[in-house]
């Protein structure tokens, strides 16, 4: 099976006035295409930092990061943005929808930035909204929806571009259990359709949906258990 992510000796530091914090300490692992990987660990272990680097939002201070056979650790802002918008979708704990835009407009946004034509955009947004069963809410604003519905919109937005990889940062953290399960089912469906998913979570329950759990502590991988 093809490797989509390969990181080797990845390092990231945060420096304040006098203290230098090591967020990632020579971390290495690989993720294959079509995998569903959960990353777990206590607060401050470097999970979010890792996710930001994997999502090309942040650059590492050391080590190698090969995404889809390309070394990207030395990419500049523009190249990273370009790679990101075509290949990666994000799902956040706090949904991060834009309050001033409707459901439809929120989902449409990534397509605008990738330069998709209006006709095609309409088709694809409606398709994904149907799939997520929120078509009837397309003209509502985020505050008018429940948490579960908001996260479904966020997932719809993440997948509308058909990304190779979805990065989910505690996708159920702000949801009750039934809404949470719904979102996890949605992610599983996407994974089964071929999308690679990397999910950061605190929840053992959610982690069970994945194929493999990577546990981290102090910026390092401590264990790795394959579930399937």
């Amino acid at each position: 099976m093809k490797t989509i992510i390969s990181i080797t000796d990845l390092e990231k530091f945060y420096s304040t006035d006098e203290v230098r914090t090591i967020a990632l300490n020579k971390l290495s692992f690989k993720v294959n295409e079509g995998e569903f990987v959960a990353i777990m660990g206590p607060s401050g272990c470097g999970k979010s930092t890792l996710l930001n680097i994997l999502g090309l939002l942040d650059d590492p201070d050391g080590g190698s990061f090969i995404f889809n056979d390309i070394e990207v650790s030395d990419f500049n802002e523009r190249k990273r943005a370009n790679l990101r918008k075509h290949n990666i979708g994000f799902v956040f704990q706090s949904f991060n929808l834009i309050d001033e835009l409707t459901v439809y407009e929120n989902v449409e946004l990534p397509l605008i930035y990738t330069g998709v034509k209006p006709d095609e955009r309409k088709k694809r947004v409606e398709e994904v909204l149907e799939k997520m069963q929120i078509m009837h809410r397309r003209k509502h604003f985020p505050q008018q929806l429940s948490g579960g519905q908001q996260q479904r919109v966020a997932v719809a937005r993440a997948v509308v571009n058909n990304p190779k990889l979805i990065l989910a940062d505690e996708p159920t953290g702000n949801l009750d259990s039934s809404n949470g399960n719904e979102v996890m089912d949605l992610l599983t469906e996407l994974n089964e359709a071929g999308t690679t998913i990397i999910m950061v979570t605190h929840s053992e329950h959610d982690a069970k949906y994945s194929h493999r759990i990577i546990r981290m502590l102090d910026g390092q991988k401590v264990t790795e258990n394959v579930l399937v």
Binding site: R78, A81, R84, F90, N96, E100, L109
Partner: peptide, 16 residues
């Protein structure tokens, strides 16, 4: 700031 962050994550360029 937050909106800008979201838009950037979704692929907005500096010019956008």
């Amino acid at each position: 700031t937050k909106e800008i962050g979201i838009r950037k994550v979704l692929g907005a360029s500096v010019a956008n």
